[in-house]
């Protein structure tokens, strides 16, 4: 997919989700600078993630919103690209993971926050909300990955980003969703 198409997809996804939402950067590919500190601890309750971050929902191969739902939110500070990867998931398992790439940095991060490969300087933490890892007897809700990737490793803006996730819910059918596009840093 060419760069222009990637940007168009990004804008389309952002618009489809947020056409009724009063938030900045909705129709933009600009990743805002965080105005307050974001702690990489797997707990994305900092208001920056909800009120300021650039965001997009994953889509499936049918072009519809991915099921199970996934979402990416992105900020940056002076040192790092800050990424939140959200996964709705009725059965959270250690093997569940996001594949993520920003510029030349490509990695896989699982539901425990484990990075593969371990990239020097990259930090990741996982958080489970109302979830139990590797226990299918109950219904889970969601897990979140917070990532910090040194800007020095990503290269100059704009940055090509790819994020994807496949999941196998309790019906044992694998479903995948992804988002890809190019963003500019504020």
């Amino acid at each position: 997919m060419r760069v222009r198409e990637l940007i168009a997809v990004a804008a389309l996804v952002a618009c489809s989700k947020h056409h009724d939402a009063p938030v900045k950067h909705l129709e933009s590919d600009v990743v805002p600078r965080a105005q307050a500190a974001v702690t990489i601890d797997g707990n994305w309750e900092e208001p920056e993630w909800s009120h300021r971050a650039w965001r997009a929902q994953f889509t499936g191969s049918d072009g519809q919103l991915a099921r199970p739902s996934s979402e990416i939110r992105v900020l940056h500070d002076d040192h790092d690209l800050l990424v939140a990867l959200y996964a709705a998931d009725e059965n959270i398992e250690t093997r569940d993971a996001f594949d993520f790439a920003a510029g030349p940095v490509s990695l896989r991060v699982d539901a425990t926050g484990k990075l593969t490969p371990a990239v020097p300087g990259v930090r990741a933490k996982a958080g489970l909300d109302e979830g139990t890892l590797d226990d299918a007897r109950d219904d889970d809700e969601e897990w979140v990955i917070e990532l910090a990737i040194p800007l020095a490793q990503i290269g100059p803006s704009p940055v090509a980003i790819q994020a994807a996730r496949c999941d196998v819910p309790k019906d044992n059918v694998q479903r995948c969703g992804q988002w890809s596009g190019r963003v500019r840093l504020e």
Binding site: K17, H18, H19, D20, A21, P22, V23, W44, E45, P47, W49, S50, H51, R55, S69, E71, Y86, A88, E142
Partner: peptide, 14 residues
């Protein structure tokens, strides 16, 4: 409900 707490921008209004 939205994905995140106090996440009114993510409210699934549509």
């Amino acid at each position: 409900r939205p994905p995140n707490i106090d996440d009114i921008s993510g409210y699934p209004t549509s």
